[in-house]
């Protein structure tokens, strides 16, 4: 199958004062269109850094990342922002919803950057919240929702722009077993029913088992 993400010779280091800390070293991998990939590895293995690089929120020191034909690291900040808005849906471990906004408004946020009309935005938001099963919680603020519901709102926010890929960083890491199960089922459904390419970072082997492919990182190298 044609890879939607093609990573070649990717390296990334962080610097603490003058000390160089290599995080990723010469990573090369392909992720096929419509794949559900789990990135696993111990803390500090570089899996979140790899996810950030794929999603265009960090820049590599060397190497290339082609996502749907776009060499992401070559884009400038403004192009990168636009590219992220159109191509990437983010799901974070701690949901990262804006607490002052309702579920509807949180999901609507990415659409404010599009030329859609208010009516069209409403249709998109309602559809996304319907997919995650929160059509009846649209006017609830994050405080009025459970952890699982908050994560479902975050997933609705991630899919509302119909992105090319969905990146999820420990999406079940802050949830109880039952809520985690619901989120994983939802991600599976997005992958199978809507053919979304999903890259998920997780520590949890049970979560990883739901993915089609598992890749392991250790000390910045792909095993």
């Amino acid at each position: 199958m044609e890879p939607i993400i093609a990573i070649r010779d990717l390296s990334k280091s962080y610097y603490r004062e003058s000390l160089e800390i290599p995080v990723l070293q010469n990573i090369s991998m392909d992720i096929a269109r419509g794949e559900f990939l789990a990135l696993m590895g111990p803390s500090g293995s570089g899996k979140t850094t790899l996810l950030n690089l794929i999603a265009g929120i960090d820049r590599p020191d060397a190497g290339s990342i082609l996502v749907n034909g776009t060499d992401v690291p070559t884009l400038n900040e403004s192009e990168l922002a636009e590219w992220r808005a159109q191509n990437v849906g983010f799901v974070f471990q701690f949901y990262n919803l804006l607490p002052v906004l309702t579920a509807f408004e949180n999901v609507e946020l990415p659409l404010l950057l599009t030329p859609l009309t208010k009516k069209q935005r409403r249709e998109h938001v309602e559809a996304a919240l319907g997919v995650v099963g929160l059509g009846d919680r649209m006017n609830h603020t994050p405080k009025q929702l459970s952890g699982g519901q908050e994560q479902r709102v975050a997933i609705a926010r991630a899919i509302v722009t119909d992105p090319t890929i969905i990146v999820a960083d420990e999406p079940t890491g802050d949830l109880d077993k039952r809520s985690a199960e619901e989120i994983l089922a939802l991600l599976e459904r997005l992958n199978s029913a809507f053919e979304k390419t999903i890259v998920m970072v997780t520590h949890d082997p049970r979560a990883a088992d739901r993915a089609h492919v598992q890749r392991h990182l250790e000390k910045g190298e792909l095993l």
Binding site: I57, E77, A81, R84, A85, Q86, F90, L98, L109, R157
Partner: peptide, 13 residues
């Protein structure tokens, strides 16, 4: 953190 989330969603500086 919220500003970072907004940037992640495509909001610019």
């Amino acid at each position: 953190m919220e500003y970072a989330v907004l940037k992640t969603l495509g909001f610019r500086t």
